[in-house]
Amino acid sequence: MKGWVVFLVLLGGCAPMPESYPIPEQRSLKDGPEPEPLQAFVSFSDTRSPDYVVGGFLPSAPDQFWRWASVSPTVRVRVSEKRGLRLRVNFAFPEESHKPLLPITVRYFVNDKLLEAVVYKQAGVLEFRRPVPSEWLLENADNLIRCEISPVYVAKADGMKLSMIVSELGLERNE
């Protein structure tokens, strides 16, 4: 019954749209943030690190200095000078989960070009460093760094694919 009353009231109140409108609430004109230029190297302790991630990483907890990677973690970095650079990736294979998976192959790509495929026969904290041909890189544009890891650990609880723990990666000057 109530619904019918509402319906009839609405029917009776079927008015045209207002003819004029007041001045709305005014917005502030102050400048806000803009994306800053990305750097050549990303550390997951950096609060801007999400801006470098293109895909293949699991969400991180607050104040976490590393990220779990999935099968194909990818980041973008930018360089202003493309000569004399090398790729560095600092990562780890946790003993408990990854030891049974060994050997693990990691293929490192820069802008979709295979830099190297490394077979790791031990777990623990690891580092990869290798010079990158300058002709592979773009100056002042996004350069994609991708790792492909096989095999990966599949979490029993939720089926999540965990390949490695990454703390930092990117391009740095050859020393």
Partner: peptide, 8 residues
């Protein structure tokens, strides 16, 4: 235009 249009 003013900066910060994304956040706006």
């Amino acid at each position: 235009t003013p900066l910060g249009l994304r956040r706006a």
